[in-house]
């Protein structure tokens, strides 16, 4: 505000307050009106906030259940493949569901090598008990660990959620040295595969399937 404007404001608009008669009842009446106006402004603000939440919900990308990018409901834990049995292909979810001794895992069915040139689905080789990529020939163990071939890392996994009641009991977790499958507490627990969350496999040099093989030189083993 310029000095000029400031002066004009004082001259033109700022007049001394008319002296209030100061009757108690009237004063309470007027302050009640002020308070109610604030309450109203508050409810209108909450309303705006509510509309904001609605708009946020409306805008947020949302994936339909059982379509790729959303959550896949596998059913109760009893519907999982048995430990040691053949992996189940889920075509729509683009994953292989495996029940390993350490827990259930959902491997993205895209070979980690081919991601740059275009996705290639790998397949399960039942005779040799491993996953094979038909294009680059990389082989992975049932647990998703890299065995051999040109792929840069072990298989990627989607996050599996184990739900008891309405609560997520356990999830697939990535630790610095391994990817931990969720614990299944009871046969009734529900299994969900969240295809919006992917955990990248570890670099092939870290694959446990290589331990002891001549391909990999493990520093610890050398010194021992």
């Amino acid at each position: 505000m310029t000095v000029h404007q400031d002066l004009r404001r004082q001259q033109d608009w700022e007049v001394p307050l008319p002296v209030q008669p100061g009757k108690g009842a009237e004063h309470r009446e007027t302050s009640r009106r002020e308070l109610l106006t604030y309450v109203w402004a508050g409810t209108l603000a909450v309303m705006t906030l509510g509309s904001g939440i609605a708009a946020y919900q409306f805008l947020y990308p949302y994936h339909r259940a059982n379509t790729f990018g959303g959550k896949f409901y596998i059913g109760a834990a009893t519907d999982l493949p048995l430990v040691g049995s053949e992996p189940q292909a889920n075509v729509d979810g683009r994953f292989w569901l495996v029940n390993t001794e350490t827990g259930p895992r959902a491997f993205s069915n895209i070979c980690p090598r081919s991601l740059a040139t275009g996705p290639v689905k790998f397949t399960w080789d039942a005779d040799r008990n491993r996953f094979d990529c038909p294009v680059c020939g990389t082989k992975f163990s049932r647990e998703g660990h890299y065995i051999e071939g040109p792929a840069p890392r072990s298989l990627d996994q989607f996050v599996i959620e184990v739900v008891t009641g309405h609560k997520v009991f356990a999830k697939t977790k990535r630790l610095p040295e391994e990817i931990i499958a969720p614990v299944v507490p009871s046969p009734e627990a529900k299994i969900l595969v969240d295809t919006s969350k992917i955990i990248e496999g570890f670099a092939r040099m870290d694959s446990p399937a290589l331990r002891g093989s001549s391909l990999k030189v493990v520093p610890g083993e050398l010194s021992a």
Binding site: R33, V39, W40, T43, L44, V46, M47, G50, S51
Partner: peptide, 17 residues
């Protein structure tokens, strides 16, 4: 009028919830 405003916006909020 103010009370009408308060009441109706509260009802609106409940409906939205």
């Amino acid at each position: 009028k103010i009370v009408w405003g308060i009441l109706s916006s509260l009802i609106g909020i409940i409906a939205l919830l």
